[in-house]
């Protein structure tokens, strides 16, 4: 009786709850998982003659990601070129993460220690690049570092150099560009972490015989670690797939995964390979996120 109706009501509530969340679920399925499923399916098909795919099951694309078959004698070897691209991308992403961290930490610290009013202004300045198109920002960087650009002109005028330094179309140029583009993503979570940091702990550290370096390493860094991890993930993940910046500033000489994937869908006319490469990229990102999730719970207890 009473219990029965109670249960019935609960069931009804559960059902209507389901119905209410249905639009969101559909959107999630179609919007997020849908394209992913398509990419996953394409990676198991044969490439079409000019573009697109043929609906024939094939593991060729996955095979090609890491291995290659010699067309003459049929021996199988590691696809060095592909591995080099993955390695180059990973290296660039790690470097970008490291450089943005080294630059972002003092920047975030500076902002967090400003008075409340000017802090908002500094944060706004940091986020300004977000409001500009990535391509335009990248060309702006190009304008700064090219041989006749602002940097070289200034250095020449100051007499510090005699011939312009060739930065553009080099690894350095790409790193500079990536650092510029992703720095805000590092600064914001770092700022959030430092903003919550209790500065009195620094005095407690000094009081207990810790030197400046020890206070940084033993007190500040462990406490703001969630911010460091979050910022690193936020920079590492998108920079791994970045293709506009490496293409424009690297001059297409050093291909990154992003460019390579784009190539497969374009001139390469190998959609399945592009799809399987995308899946590998996703896998790397998932592993990176798993590392983050692993470290996060321990940190959360401190807040």
């Amino acid at each position: 009786m009473g219990i029965g109706t109670e249960e019935g009501r609960k069931k009804h509530q559960a059902r209507s709850g389901w119905l209410l969340s249905l639009p969101a679920l559909v959107l999630l399925l179609v919007g997020a998982s849908g394209p992913l499923v398509i990419v996953a399916v394409y990676s198991f098909l044969k490439p079409g003659e000019y573009s697109g795919v043929q609906w024939i099951f094939s593991l060729e694309a996955w095979f090609k990601v890491l291995l290659e078959k010699d067309i003459f004698d049929g021996t199988i070897s590691l696809a060095d070129a592909h591995l080099a691209i993955f390695w180059r991308s990973a290296k660039l992403s790690l470097l970008t993460t490291a450089v943005t961290l080294v630059l972002g930490l003092p920047t975030a610290w500076f902002i967090a220690t400003r008075p409340a009013r000017s802090r908002a202004l500094w944060l706004f300045l940091i986020t300004i690049p977000f409001w500009t198109n990535l391509l335009i920002r990248t060309f702006a960087i190009m304008e700064v570092i090219r041989n006749e650009g602002i940097l070289n002109t200034a250095l020449l005028a100051l007499g510090l150099i005699e011939t312009p330094i060739q930065i553009l179309y080099s690894g350095t140029a790409v790193l500079i560009g990536m650092t510029y583009v992703y720095l805000p993503l590092m600064v914001l979570p770092l700022f959030a972490a430092i903003d919550r940091f209790d500065f009195r702990l620094i005095e407690a550290g000094y009081d207990l015989y810790a030197s400046r370096w020890q206070v940084l390493r033993r007190v500040i860094l462990p406490i703001i670690r969630p911010g460091i991890v979050a910022g690193s993930i936020l920079v590492f993940v998108p920079s791994l797939g970045a293709y506009v910046t490496p293409r424009v500033l690297g001059g297409g000489k050093n291909m990154m995964i992003g460019n390579f994937i784009e190539l497969q869908f374009g001139q390469g006319r190998n959609w399945p390979l592009g799809a399987s490469l995308s899946m590998v990229l996703l896998l790397i990102v998932v592993v990176a996120l798993l590392i983050y999730v692993r470290t996060a719970p321990q940190e959360d207890r401190h807040d």
Partner: peptide, 20 residues
């Protein structure tokens, strides 16, 4: 002398314990 070279310790009003 800087604080870390003084054989003096403080009990802070806010305690300032290291949360980690």
């Amino acid at each position: 002398e800087p604080p870390y070279r003084r054989p003096v310790n403080t009990v802070f009003q806010s305690y300032a314990l290291f949360p980690h």
